[in-house]
Design a protein around this nucleic acid. Structure first.
Lengths: 344, 344
DNA sequence: AACCAATTTGCCACCGGTGGCAAGTAAATC
DNA sequence: GATTTACTTGCCACCGGTGGCAAATTGGTT
C-alpha cells in the first residue's frame, strides 16, 4: 500500500505553507495566480487528495449525505438512489444509505444518531418516513440540512420536494369516467400515510366531477404490496356485483389485480379495466401492460439532492427556496378500455 | 443544536484521563472493573458517542463499508443491499454505495479513489465488476479488505462468495429434458461476463447428458435487459422452425419472451415453455408465473458482509477462510410444461 | 519491610486538515 | 518617497480521538 500524499508533502514540494495549499483546495479567492497554479501542479503530480476525515474533523464537513427510508418498494428505491447518486458524484459527495423503522418509537433518536455518528452533511428523507413531523422538527432543531420527498407540501419550500399525486389521481378519475366506467373500485394504500389519502381523495374528487361516487365497500385498504393487492382483488372480483374498473394505489397491487382477474377468467381490459400508480418497471412488463400514473421519481431525486447540497453549501441561506413541485402524468397502456356496451 | 459531549467531558466527570475512556470505549482489557463501570455510567449519562472522524483520523478506521456495482438489476441490487445493511447495522457499520462503470478505463483508479476518499474499512464488489481481476489485484495490493460476489470461484476463499450457477443451469437442463423438450433455445447474457458463460455452459452440459445439443442459431446473446429479451424472442419465435422451450439467462429477458409469445398468440406453457434465472420479484408477478432458478442473493449478501467485517476486525488473519459457496435452486411455476405430444 | 511482577492509569505526541490572526508584499495615494 | 490600502501568505492552536511508553498502583513473595 503506497503511502498517501499529505498536505504537508504538497506544501513542502510547492514551497508554500500548508495553509496555502488548503486555500487552493477549497477554492479560496485570496491566493495569487502563480502560487495557485504551482500548487495545483504539485497536487496533480502527487495525485494528492485531501483526507476527508481530517478535513471533517477540522471543519465539520464530511461530504457525506444520507438517504433515510423505511422498506420502500425496491423499484422506487432504486430510482431514487440512482438519481441521488448522479448528483452526488457530480458534486463530490458520497451517499450513505440508512433503512429505519418509521413506526418505531426510536425513529427520531435513531436518525439523529445516524447523522451524528457518520457526521453527515445532510439527509434526504423518503416517504413514509418523510411524513413524520416529529422527525422533521428534530432535524430542524438540530440544525441539520435535510430535504423530504413527499406527495403533500408539509414543510417549507426549502426542505421539500412534492409530487402532486392528488391531481394525478384526479386525472385517472377523469380518464376512467371518459371511458364510460361508473362501477369503479379503489384499492388504497395504508390510510395512515398521507400519500395514500391524497391519492384516494384526488380520485374521489375527480370522479365526483362526473357525478360518480365510490361506494364505501368498493374502497379497500391494502398495504401497497403485491400480496395485499391479490387479497383485495379477490374481495372485489369474487363478489356478486363486480366493478368494471379498479384503480390501485400502486403498480404492485395493480399487478395483483391482474393475477386474480386472470385466475378467475376475467379478461382485462375487455371485462375489467385496471390501473396502477408509479409506472415502475413492473407496469410495462406485465400482460396486459398497465395503464398507470408515472411518478417522476428520478426528477424528484435530482431536485432534492440539488436543493440539499445547495442548502449545505450556502450554509442554509435562502437561494434554494424555489418551490420544487413535480407533476405525475397519466400513461395509458393496455389494461384499460372503454366499458363494455358503452359508446360515449 | 445541543453540543455533543466529547471524550474530555467524560474523562473529567468520571475523574479519569481520556486515554482510559478511550480504552473503555474500545473494550481494552487493561481497565479496572470499578473504573470501567464508572466510566460506562458517565458515558451513558452523557449519551456520549465517539466522533468517528476523529477516531478514524487517529486509528485509520471508519466503520464505513462500500458497495461497488455497475448498473445492476434494480431487484438484485435491492436484495443485496438489504442483506448487507442488515449485517452492517448489527455490527455497527454504515454503508456507502458506489456505482461505477465496469468497462471504463478508470475503473480501478475510480474505485481506489473512492475507498481512499471515504476511508472505507472495506468493500463488497458485485458482478460484473467483481469479475475484474485487475481491480481485485489492485485492492489486494493496496491492502484493502474486500469481498467479491461471483458465480465463479475466481479468488481465494477469503475474498469471495460464489453461487454455483453452472450446476443450477444444468439442473434446468435436466428439468427441460425430463419434460420431453428437445428443441430448446437459450438466450444468453453478454458473453464477456463469466456469469453468462457459466450458465450457458452449465445448461449445455446438462442437456448433453440427455443427448440434446443446442443448435448454434438457437443460442442468442442478449444483454440481460427486458428489451433485448424481446428482441431475442422475436428472432426465435418468428422463425420458420420454433423451439418448444426457451431458457433465458435471467428473469427480465424471460419476461420479454412471455411478452413476445403473447403478442404472437403462442400459448405458454402449452405451446412454449419459458424459464428464467434469478427468481426476483418479477418472476412471480408475470402471467404465467415464471419457472426459474432461485439465486440466494440475500444469503450471499449476508455471508459476504460477515466475511468482510471479520477480515477487517481480525486484521486479515485467517479465520474467515471458510469457503462460502451457495447453491441456487430450481423453482417450478407455471411457465413450463411437458412438451406437446410427449408422454414420457 | 523490601522487592518484584503484573496490572492499571496517565502523559504527550500525533493523525491531516482548517480557522483566526499577524506578518509580509505589492499596488495606490498623497 | 512615505504612507495607506488591499491582497497574499504563514504561523500556531485546535478539531477529538488513539498509540507508545512511563508512572503509579496492586498484590504476592521472600
Amino acid at each position: 500500500m503506497q503511502k498517501q500524499a499529505t498536505i504537508n508533502d504538497v506544501a513542502r514540494i510547492a514551497g508554500v505553507s500548508k495553509r496555502t495549499v488548503s486555500r487552493v483546495i477549497n477554492g479560496s479567492l485570496s491566493v495569487g495566480d502563480t502560487t495557485r497554479t504551482r500548487v495545483e501542479k504539485v497536487i496533480s503530480e502527487l495525485k494528492y487528495s485531501p483526507n476527508t476525515q481530517a478535513r471533517g474533523l477540522a471543519s465539520s464537513r464530511s461530504y457525506l449525505l444520507g438517504l433515510i427510508y423505511d422498506n420502500p418498494d425496491a423499484l422506487y428505491l432504486d430510482d431514487v438512489q440512482r438519481g441521488v447518486l448522479e448528483v452526488c458524484s457530480n458534486l463530490g459527495y458520497e451517499l450513505v444509505v440508512h433503512p429505519c423503522r418509521y413506526r418505531s418509537e426510536t425513529l427520531v433518536q435513531d436518525c439523529l444518531r445516524f447523522m451524528q455518528r457518520s457526521k453527515l452533511d445532510g439527509v434526504i428523507v423518503l416517504p413514509p418516513v418523510s411524513e413524520s413531523e416529529t422527525l422533521a422538527q428534530a432535524l430542524k432543531e438540530s440544525g441539520s440540512a435535510y430535504v423530504r420527498l413527499s406527495s403533500v407540501a408539509l414543510d417549507e419550500a426549502k426542505h421539500i420536494v412534492v409530487s402532486d399525486d392528488r391531481a394525478a389521481a384526479a386525472e385517472m378519475a377523469r380518464y376512467f369516467a371518459q371511458l364510460g366506467h361508473e362501477h369503479i373500485a379503489f384499492i388504497s394504500g395504508p390510510q395512515r400515510y398521507k400519500s395514500s389519502t391524497e391519492r384516494m381523495e384526488g380520485f374521489q374528487l375527480g370522479l365526483s366531477a362526473y357525478g360518480i361516487k365510490l361506494q364505501p365497500d368498493w374502497i379497500i385498504e391494502g398495504n401497497n404490496t403485491y400480496e395485499t393487492g391479490i387479497e383485495c382483488a379477490r374481495q372485489l372480483l369474487q363478489a356478486e356485483e363486480k366493478p368494471t374498473a379498479i384503480f390501485a394505489n400502486n403498480d404492485q397491487m395493480a399487478a395483483g389485480v391482474l393475477k386474480v382477474a386472470h385466475s378467475l377468467g376475467i379478461k382485462v381490459p375487455e371485462q375489467l379495466s385496471v390501473a396502477g400508480f408509479d409506472d415502475n418497471m413492473l407496469a410495462s412488463r406485465v400482460i396486459p401492460a398497465l395503464t398507470t400514473i408515472k411518478r417522476p421519481v428520478r426528477q424528484m431525486a435530482l431536485l432534492a439532492t440539488s436543493k440539499l447540497i445547495m442548502s449545505i453549501e450556502n450554509n442554509d441561506k435562502a437561494a434554494s427556496n424555489v418551490a420544487a413541485k413535480v407533476a405525475p402524468t397519466l400513461v395509458v397502456r393496455e389494461s384499460t378500455a372503454r366499458v363494455a356496451g358503452s359508446n360515449d
